[in-house]
Write a protein that binds this DNA or RNA. Structure first.
Length: 511
RNA sequence: GCGGGCGUAGUUCAAUGGUAGAACGGCAGCCUUCCAAGCUGCACACGAGGGUUCGAUUCCCUUCGCCCGCUCCA
């Protein structure tokens, strides 16, 4: 696809999601708020299905994974231990001309002083020889300006020490020209609030930027009570918050999002790479099981030099979004960094005692982390299709259809009376609805021509349409009495079956 | 956060310095024996705030939001 059609494709997804009640801009009546989304009736169903599938497959179907729901707001020290507080408080400086951004404490500058008078400023980024670089730049500066006199040795300072009246005079390391640098600003990606009656430094708390820390902080509690044996995992689904500078690409990057994370604890002597691979494969298979085509998935291994010092390896499962291949699921081997950090900060030993080996150790961890929102978007992008369907007169017309995997579809089956002005059809159709409703999310619709009703369901991805017609009532004899037609969303083919077989049939297709 | 583009019914679009139309969609009714049929009726919009003006959806400013490109993504 060309760039234009990729963008057009996204716009179709966005407007379908709005039109059919999957996704709304948050607070729309007040003009909206950037980076937050609401999920309408069908969106809420779709997300519930995503969460339920994950939870069933990740937790309930396994002997070695247990669930957890930790609080969104935790003790502020959690985020000091995890590194989020320090990592988020770096003051940053923007160059308005080059659009580059620098950490203020890594951007150095010095006044050029000739014969005791300040002639201007030079700047350089932190390196092994920042001082020499500044000295050389000062000499070049003096030569270019043809200044006579004695150049004093430069005194390097970092940008956090720049006085407000100096900032406009300091050249950008990117352009060499002064006047384009902003004052240092702190970019703290954590949303914060105050807990309790007082609003001061001591009452600051953060909305979690990831759910993972809950599993680490509660590690001992789970081990002591959960009857778990290494290797084992702790899984959690929940909202997380990051004050993203640029939320973009619909729900791909937002400020409030929902994560599904699992920390798989293994022995420090176990082969982490084996488990890393195991979970990458598990995640890929799971994605395929919810209807994401394997052909749109790829893997990206983070290069060693870019990994955090504690990380042994991180692999992202990438999905080919309309706006490019982007991270969908990150599988990180985090060593024992997190547990060790919490042991250090809390003073509580984060160890596991291996009864068989009579040995105590800090487990290592492999973490598959994914967002409900990104999976939802990947599913929507994978499912969207336009094909041809015949109209009443047999003429081909284009049809919009969401080809959701049945297990993920918000509505599993729609129930229709062929005509709504025939009370017998309506009554029978409602009977069928009531038969299925305790087991499946079904939708009853009698408004409009039957073809229109099929199309409406196509657009929201309902895999099956069940129609009650005159044959159901026995118009053509007992052979067909109490049979209905079941129409397949993708093939548009119909199959007639006994109402008594209907539930069994649908369940077999859906699970 | 920076630069560019854009904000009109649910959606996709039109028109206009004198307070807005269409198509599709929605709802109700009639009709209709399987793929968006037809007829009738109904509801629904100028993102927000300020300014200029006798009068602003239209011009200007601000703001919010969306899209694109940078940046960011620990």
């Amino acid at each position: 696809m060309s760039e234009l059609t990729e963008n057009a494709f996204m716009e179709k997804i966005v407007s379908l999601c709005k039109r059919r009640g999957f996704i709304f801009q948050s607070s729309e009546i007040y003009g909206g708020i950037n980076g937050f989304w609401d999920f309408g009736p069908l969106g809420a169903e779709l997300r519930k299905n995503i969460r339920d599938c994950w939870w069933n497959d990740m937790v309930r179907s396994r002997d070695d994974v247990v669930g957890l729901e930790s609080a969104i707001i935790m003790h502020p020290k959690v985020w000091e231990a995890s590194g989020h507080v320090a990592g988020f408080n770096d003051p940053m400086v923007d160059c308005k001309v080059s659009k580059q951004r620098f950490r203020a404490d890594q951007l150095f500058f010095a006044a050029v002083i000739v014969d005791g008078k300040a002639a201007g400023y030079v700047s350089a980024l932190e390196s092994e020889k920042t001082a020499e670089e500044l000295q050389e730049k000062a000499e070049t500066f003096k030569r270019k300006k043809a200044l006579a006199g004695k150049l004093e040795p430069v005194q390097a300072r970092d940008f956090t020490q720049a006085k407000p009246d100096e900032i406009p005079l300091i050249p950008s390391p990117a352009t060499g020209e002064a006047g384009s640098l902003t004052a240092p600003r702190a970019f703290n990606m954590m949303l914060q609030t105050w807990v309790g009656a007082l609003r001061d430094e001591s009452s600051i708390a953060y909305l979690r930027p990831e759910t993972a820390q809950g599993m680490f902080v509660d590690f001992k509690a789970v081990v002591d009570t959960g009857r778990v044996k290494i290797p084992f995992g702790v899984a959690q689904i929940g909202k997380s918050f990051r004050n993203e500078i640029t939320p973009r690409n619909f729900i791909f990057r937002s400020r409030e999002f929902e994560q599904m994370e699992m920390e798989y604890f293994i022995s420090d002597e176990d082969d982490w790479a084996k488990w890393h691979r195991y979970w990458i494969d598990w995640c890929r298979n799971w994605l395929v099981s919810v209807g994401i085509p394997a052909a749109k998935l790829s893997e990206y291994n983070h290069p060693r030099e870019k990994l955090s010092h504690y990380s042994k390896g991180t692999t992202d499962i990438m999905f080919q979004f309309p706006f490019g291949a982007q991270e969908l699921w990150g599988i990180a081997a985090r060593g024992n960094y997190d547990l060790s950090q919490h042991a250090k900060f809390s003073g509580v030993a984060m160890e596991y005692f291996d009864d068989a080996a009579r040995r105590r150790f800090v487990p290592h961890v492999v973490e598959p982390a994914v967002g409900v929102d990104r999976i939802m978007l990947a599913i929507l992008c994978s499912a969207y299709a336009e094909d041809e369907a015949p109209d009443e007169k047999g003429k081909m017309e284009s049809r919009v259809v969401l080809r959701f995997a049945p297990r993920i579809a918000p509505v599993k089956a729609a129930i229709f009376p062929l005509l709504k002005n025939k009370p017998e059809l309506v009554a029978k159709a409602k009977e069928v609805r009531d038969l299925l409703r305790p087991h499946l999310n079904v939708f009853y619709d009698e408004a409009g021509a039957i073809g229109r009703r099929y199309r409406r369901q196509d657009e929201i991805g309902t895999p099956f349409g069940v129609t009650v017609d005159f044959d159901t009532l026995g118009e053509k004899g007992d052979e067909l009495r109490d049979t209905v037609t079941v129409r397949d969303r993708d093939t548009m083919k119909q199959e007639r079956m006994k109402i008594s077989k209907l539930l069994e049939f649908l369940l077999s297709k859906i699970h």
